[in-house]
Computed example of a mutant assay.
Amino acid sequence: MKTWTKACCIAVITSAIAACSSSPTGRNQLILFSDAQMSQLGAQSFEQMKKEQKVSTDKAVNAYVQCVAKAITDHVPPQPEFSEWEVVVFDSDQVNAFALPGGKIGVYTGLLNVAVTPDQLATVIGHEVAHVLADHSNERLSQSQLANTGLQITNAALGGYQYRDVTMAALGVGVQYGVILPYGRTQESEADIVGLELMARSGFDPNQSVELWKNMAKASGGNQPPELLSTHPSHDTRISDLRAKTATLTKYDTFKPDCK
């Protein structure tokens, strides 16, 4: 092996080791990008989505989603790169929601046909915010770049068109752009746990998380692939895990948000 190749490999390995971090549940993570970089990516991607997708102008729906989201984010610790969470409701039949680094939350109106109560909507928003708090986007983008470019990516390249699809997918919004780079099962389960604690702390009923996923199972029409062929936990596994976690949650003496 040539000297420069050895040096490059050593540099990559050293950087990766130095970038090891821990998730909220104590799991080891590879984190290569700074909070500032990820917040910038999140903000850029969110602005792009607001231009390309229809934003709901329904005042009642917006007020309802904003109420639930604010109840959740009011219980999130202060973040180093932003002071406020921005929430946008997209007018779409997609049964989906997401949260991006930099404090950006998107909720699709189609989700409200499945998450039919404030507690169920809080389950989804808490889950998506948990992805941000656990640095899951950073982790996915770090793994992707380490595998594909050997850490030879700069701030300018991150924002460049050639990395748009990879970046959008890593942030959790790639499906809308024809790119599939989903969160893994471990990250999904971790977001379930952290999100459940967050919604309970915010005054919502964590038991409704089980009802939400029952609704999700019905909405999928039984078309979900077998668990071993999917990166997401199966509905049954998810429901079982949520029931077990709910049974161990601290009982928070918190005022229940009045979101209608």
Results as ranks from 00 to 15, higher is better:
79 Q>S: 08
54 K>C: 07
41 L>A: 07
20 C>D: 10
54 K>F: 02
213 W>R: 06
27 R>H: 13
67 C>S: 01
231 T>E: 04
172 G>A: 00
160 G>K: 02
121 L>K: 01
188 E>I: 00
193 I>E: 15
84 E>H: 10
84 E>G: 04
30 L>D: 09
124 V>L: 09
150 G>S: 08
106 G>L: 05
220 S>E: 09
258 D>S: 08
95 V>S: 03
100 L>R: 01
155 N>K: 10
102 G>H: 01
253 D>Q: 09
155 N>V: 00
158 L>E: 02
255 F>M: 08
91 D>S: 09
67 C>W: 04
129 V>L: 05
156 A>H: 06
244 A>L: 14
86 E>C: 08
168 M>P: 02
48 Q>D: 14
185 R>G: 08
119 D>M: 01
215 N>W: 04
241 D>S: 12
67 C>F: 05
197 E>N: 08
16 A>V: 05
48 Q>E: 06
225 P>D: 01
239 I>F: 12
237 T>N: 09
140 R>K: 13
250 T>N: 12
201 R>P: 15
50 K>E: 05
188 E>Y: 03
107 V>D: 05
66 Q>W: 02
16 A>L: 15
64 Y>D: 12
100 L>C: 08
43 A>K: 00
112 L>V: 07
182 P>R: 06
215 N>M: 06
49 M>C: 01
94 Q>Y: 03
97 A>K: 04
128 E>L: 05
42 G>A: 01
39 S>C: 10
250 T>G: 14
90 F>P: 09
29 Q>A: 02
165 D>L: 10
173 V>M: 07
32 L>K: 15
152 Q>H: 14
17 I>N: 13
246 T>N: 13
195 G>H: 07
224 Q>L: 00
229 L>S: 14
5 T>R: 12
82 F>D: 08
135 D>Q: 07
184 G>K: 02
238 R>I: 12
260 K>H: 14
111 L>Q: 10
256 K>Y: 02
239 I>M: 15
180 I>N: 14
5 T>I: 15
258 D>M: 05
186 T>D: 12
71 A>S: 14
107 V>I: 14
171 L>W: 01
82 F>S: 11
199 M>N: 05
46 F>V: 13
133 L>D: 04
207 N>A: 04
158 L>C: 12
28 N>P: 15
134 A>L: 00
167 T>I: 12
144 S>G: 11
100 L>P: 04
211 E>F: 10
73 T>P: 06
205 D>P: 00
149 T>F: 12
43 A>H: 13
